[in-house]
Design a binder for these strands. Structure first.
Lengths: 205, 205
DNA sequence: TGTACATCAGTGAACGCGCGTTCACTGATGTAC
DNA sequence: TGTACATCAGTGAACGCGCGTTCACTGATGTAC
């Protein structure tokens, strides 16, 4: 972000970071290319040396987000250790932690309207993220007797939807008032009830 | 939307509708006041006869959304008939149906970043909507033995988050590809597992 | 029923503004010899 | 080590554009008598 001479040194990344902080502040469509340039301490024209335009900039922010996201999820999942159940719960917590720690990335990824198929690279990165979630769900659902085992992709979708819903409705100081619930507690309790419903933890605590 | 003479006749509502269709197309911040005026067949200056500006217009769209939403939820809930469980499931389905049928309203309400406390009127309307959801959850959770009964507000929040997550991730042809799941089926199955986890429906189907 | 007049809801011209984008340019950096 | 030169990454001026907002205005409507 700091500029010492005529050459910036790392303008590309500085622009991505300006974009991220503007997204966090004003939403995915609430800022202009010129603003991002200004925040990076540079002329609007300079942006074109690195990106084709605003969309392209946001897409790169999203890509970096998926990169971080995947790493975090993989770390949390830890190849299903110590148990499939614990690993699964850890991914849920990691999802929330990511949304909290990287709000700009999160918005670029899930709220900006940028298509994941915009570039092959973005598609690949996001597919990898999804794969971790699904592998975690698969490990888990294998412990359910085969005849009443739901598809792992479905379980994964359920938890993803729940996590995303919690983030959107309760983790941001979203529509005006702040949340009446602690988002972590909310996700934890929802997952507990859900897993009980799957027969993976005993009905009585 | 049709203009026959010098006077529009119902410009205020026409503007709201233009706003809704633009929101659906381009997102909550992806259109201008002038565009909305144009779509309603009117000069930008005319908008100021009815609204203070863009935000005010969106807020009115959101308010109308909450109005419809509440009515739909109340109809689905039907005072807990025939059973608390059936009524609860009906509200879940109604949530999804609303999001599908009124995407513009839905976005104005939940994605536009318009604070629900912007005007007392908007706050009241949205509180009423939330109340229906909570009453439904309360009726349901009363059937759980008191010593292990979760707070109704929490149950309500869980279902709301799940529904919202399903809408955002799977009901829109959101990030690029269309959904791999039918959103109705996804919500239905998630709610089934969740309710089983609460001990409200038997463990084995 | 007809007329005069007040009110209302729109027009259209004007303004200043910031944006995106292009372009020839220039200062800084890297490298061949 | 020094120098010449190519390349790179930025500048800043220029442009046309559409926006938001204001204003005096005007055409349509409603109403009192």
């Amino acid at each position: 972000m700091r500029k010492q001479g005529y050459h910036h040194g790392n303008l590309r990344q500085a622009l991505v970071e300006a974009c991220l902080s503007l997204i966090t502040e004003k939403g995915p469509t609430g800022f202009t290319l010129s603003e991002a340039a200004r925040e990076a301490g540079v002329t609007p024209a300079a942006v074109y040396r690195h990106f084709e335009g605003r969309e392209d900039l946001i897409a790169e922010a999203a890509r970096q987000g998926y990169e971080i996201f995947t790493a975090l999820m993989e770390f949390a999942y830890d190849n299903g250790k110590p148990t499939a159940l614990a690993a699964f719960e850890a991914t849920g917590r990691a999802y929330l932690a990511f949304a909290k720690k990287y709000p700009g990335h999160y918005i670029a990824m899930f709220e900006s309207g940028i298509s994941v198929n915009r570039t092959p690279e973005l598609a690949a990165t996001s597919a990898k993220a999804r794969a971790v979630l699904e592998e975690s769900a698969r490990g888990l659902s294998q412990r359910i007797p085969e005849d009443r085992r739901p598809p792992a992709t479905m379980v994964s979708a359920h938890i993803w939807a729940m996590s995303h819903g919690v983030v959107e409705l309760f983790a941001r100081n979203s529509p005006g008032q702040q949340s009446p619930f602690d988002p972590e507690a909310l996700l934890e309790s929802a997952m507990g009830i859900y897993l009980r419903g799957l027969g993976l933890i005993p009905p009585e605590r």
